[in-house]
Amino acid sequence: MRKLIDKLVFTICSLSTVLVLAILALIIIYILANGVLAINLDFFTKLPKPVGETGGGMVNGIIGSAIMVAIAALISIPISIGAAIYLSEFGKGYLAVIVRFLVDVLAGVPSIVIGIFIYTIVVLPMKRFSAIAGALALAIIMIPTIVRATEEALKLVPQTLREAALALGAPYWRVVLEIVVVSAHKAIISGVLLSIARVAGETAPLLFTALGNRFLVTVLDRPMASLPVQIYSYAVSPYDDWHSQAWAATFVLVMFILIINLAVRFFIYSKE
């Protein structure tokens, strides 16, 4: 009887795993099948053609996404790591409790709400959609992920390592920056990379902020294209050619996220 239950539980668990893997595999195969057919050199190098013409590419979206994600990272990484160090190393009082609570709330806010928020405080006063507004929205989404990942990483550094450094006559700030953060650097970088992978696929906050652009721009106070928004607008269009380009863009995005995830894995398990 006991053996029977044992087998039963094992079977149920195995089936669940197979189901999950099957769904994931299906998605990836579907995207691959549709995307690979549509992808070509033009996709990476050409701007979109006017409506009605076939061909063209999404170079504007790729560059736009890269610019906005990079700016978002530049804004959010220092703020987040600073906050995480505060929470892990210095935050013992009420302020820390409040900050931690706010970070949790922020992590739970739907990304479209953040888009609307930036729309209200940046886009409306500027009277214009802009790349910087999009980057800001992405930065806000990145912050809670990086803060939590970094704080956890810092907390995993053994207390005795801090004490050992203090016992050598090191001031606390040097211990934190030179020993604790350095010890946790792998986990911190992993957290940052994963948050980049996450915001690279965000669509909703960009709809109200960066909007989109059929041309390649590199100035930050103009609307800017991005891959996810472009996928959205191409996918809802009535043109078959645009549909297949949307698939190609999806494929690129998924590959980007996959590569970052693999890189993180590889990085964490690599030896010093």
């Binding site: 203090l166 006559g169 350095v182 010890s183």
Partner: peptide, 20 residues
Amino acid sequence: VVDLRRRVGMVFQKSTPFPK
């Protein structure tokens, strides 16, 4: 305190090499 801790060294139960 920082100078005191230099004058009074400490070795811990678990070895604590820095990641260096």
